[in-house]
Design a protein around this nucleic acid. Structure first.
Lengths: 159, 159
DNA sequence: AAATAATATATTGTACACAATTTAATTGTG
DNA sequence: CACAATTAAATTGTGTACAATATATTATTT
């Protein structure tokens, strides 16, 4: 792609009224760009970005059920089940039914899964570097995105 | 911001140093939430969000090649080719090889494809409403996301 | 206790996202 | 002109994203 200094008009930037439309595309393309940035870093750990997100959750709190991971990541079982099976096949986690309620599946980190956390520490800093933003800018953007997400989810069924 | 149910700690919000990590997840989940918001509105038009993005591009400039659409949307042929074939099957576009260079495929809107633009006008306003943000806020967020995307893409091969 | 409802996960099917490879057409070079 | 290099799409294969449905387990109700 080389030339990144091309004029960024985004979609329909000429019409000022279409800020909503512009924002949606900016959000979409920025998210994809972020995934592309993560890809080479994570592929060294044999992980995809969504798999990495699951591990982040487990590093914070091990032994969660599929459902609680799902709520944390705004994901669903149709996505998580096969993803978790791949993580299990990779030897990063273990899947086992809860004894007190056999509908629930408990996800536990393996030794290898726990060790990955240390290996992944320098991933963060490289990402932060690639954003070209200051901590303050990242923090501001983070807050706005959380607000946006909260509003969108709140209004999901009201449209 | 009334009832947002669960407290939003995002991922690892406890560690202030992980702003980068938080931002990545906020971006990811906000983008997915946006797609979910679009879904019911677009399904009335029988479209998916990526298909809608292609139509937005064509409404702005008809008769583009696959490659130019690809650059505009930060997408690639592996994604676009099947997507465009579906849009063709839906009767929204036509795909034809360029006469002067038969490697290129020209994408042209059909009458039905052009007419959809009018039908989609109220989609924007409903999205803007769901964001719960003011025009100024949307504009600011848009600018920051474009900056972020530009930086990420610029640094893609430098990591 | 049997029937019913609710819950948690799994399965199926469609549609991206993207790397890697392939195919076909065009351009460049000797 | 012949032939390698380049370019534009298409193809293949893996991994989500998500709606809809199925299955199994637990809780409730009659």
């Amino acid at each position: 792609m080389t030339n990144t200094t091309a004029p960024d008009k985004s979609l329909s930037a000429t019409k000022v009224s279409n800020v909503d439309l512009q924002l949606c595309f900016a959000l979409y393309s920025a998210s994809l760009s972020m995934t592309k940035t993560y890809k080479p870093l994570l592929s060294k750990l044999k992980l995809t970005y969504p798999q990495y997100l699951v591990l982040l959750v487990l590093w914070e709190k091990d032994g969660m059920t599929v459902n609680s991971i799902s709520e944390r990541l705004f994901s669903d079982s149709g996505t998580l089940t096969p993803l978790l099976k791949r993580l299990e096949k990779l030897g990063m986690i273990q899947r086992q039914r809860a004894r007190e309620d056999e509908r629930k599946v408990i996800i536990t980190l393996t030794e290898a899964g726990r060790l990955l956390q240390t290996e992944s520490t320098n991933v963060h800093s490289q990402i932060a570097c690639s954003t070209g933003c200051t901590i303050t800018e990242l923090q501001a953007l983070n807050n706005q995105l959380i607000m946006l997400r909260t509003n969108l989810i709140k209004n999901l069924n009201t449209v």
